[in-house]
């Protein structure tokens, strides 16, 4: 079964003076179970709109979204989902610990397991010391961490994260990447939005690029990076001991290596030089 299935999803918002804003124009997208999918797009592209439609917070103008085969307008479709909203806010009179246990009980977790998992996620997200304080006094990054903790606590199969790294310091960002890696290793599905290409390159299996409400490409990250290889930086040592860095085009690499043997150059290192994800993203969005 697919984790997320989006078919012909269309969303119109009422704009100024009777006009309509097309936030999403017929999106089709399928995310398999166990897949890590990066949803990439500039500001206002329609990422959050898509996610809110999938979570049943908005109603589609037409089309539909399903999670684990269940329509998004049913509360039960969210039974196996950990959701992190964009710039999340939680009942600020509760402490992180109280909120996590509230979430756990909504997922009908058994008390002992909940206590254990709650401790795990709070420690993992570095909230352990602050866990008893009301969230009113939390910093932005701490609230974001609570958001991640509450998405993880019930150990769901599907994670829907709207800009999981936003508001986090470099340590937090690295931690989120780590967490996503872990989830991937454990066969979980992660669907997350971002506009930072680097995040996608490191952790995703596939990436979709959306702009102005339209999905422009869906591609394997591997393929993009492969296709992006344009040539190689070759570090050689000449017979006289002098070192040199040469740029060799992809097609010429084989010939160069043979030639270097003839020239008695020794090759120390070969590094692929690629057009990275950032370039890929900018190119597509600019089209």
């Amino acid at each position: 079964m697919n984790a997320i299935e989006i078919t012909g999803l269309y969303k119109q918002f009422p704009g100024k003076r009777m006009t309509k804003v097309d936030a999403l124009k017929g999106l089709d997208l399928t995310i398999a179970a166990g897949e890590v999918f990066g949803f990439l797009g500039p500001n206002g592209a329609g990422k959050s709109t898509t996610i809110k439609l999938v979570m049943g917070l908005l109603r589609p103008t037409s089309g539909r979204a399903q999670i684990m085969g269940m329509d998004s307008n049913q509360a039960e479709s969210r039974r196996h989902v950990g959701y992190l909203p964009e710039n999340p806010a939680f009942y600020d009179y509760l402490s992180a610990e109280e909120y996590i246990s509230f979430v756990g009980s909504q997922f009908k977790m058994e008390a002992a397991l909940l206590a254990q998992r709650s401790e795990d996620v709070l420690k993992r997200l570095d909230l352990w010391d602050a866990r008893k304080r009301p969230m009113r006094g939390y910093s932005k990054g701490m609230v974001q961490r609570v958001g991640l903790a509450q998405a993880l606590v019930h150990d769901p199969d599907v994670y829907i994260l709207d800009e999981p790294m936003s508001g986090l310091d470099p340590i937090g960002r690295a931690l989120v990447k780590d967490i996503i890696f872990d989830l991937k290793a454990r066969g979980k599905c992660v669907f997350f939005s971002t506009h930072i290409t680097d995040d996608v390159e490191k952790v995703c299996d596939r990436v979709g690029v959306i702009n102005k409400g339209e999905l422009l490409v869906v591609e394997n990250v591997e393929t993009i990076l492969q296709r992006g290889v344009q040539g190689y930086s070759v570090f050689v040592m000449n017979p006289d001991g002098a070192k040199e860095e040469l740029f060799i085009e992809k097609a010429h690499l084989q010939a160069f290596i043979q030639q270097s043997v003839v020239n008695q150059q020794s090759i120390e290192k070969i590094e692929p030089r690629r057009k990275d994800m950032e370039a890929f993203f900018l190119e597509i969005v600019a089209q």
């Binding site: 049943g56 917070l57 509360a75 989902v81 909203p85 710039n87 806010a89 009942y91 909504q106």
Partner: peptide, 17 residues
């Protein structure tokens, strides 16, 4: 107003309940 609904209604909880 405080956007708590996003986090709470993202749980498997129906609007009615």
């Amino acid at each position: 107003e405080r956007r708590y609904t996003f986090s709470v209604l993202g749980l498997p909880l129906s609007r009615q309940s």
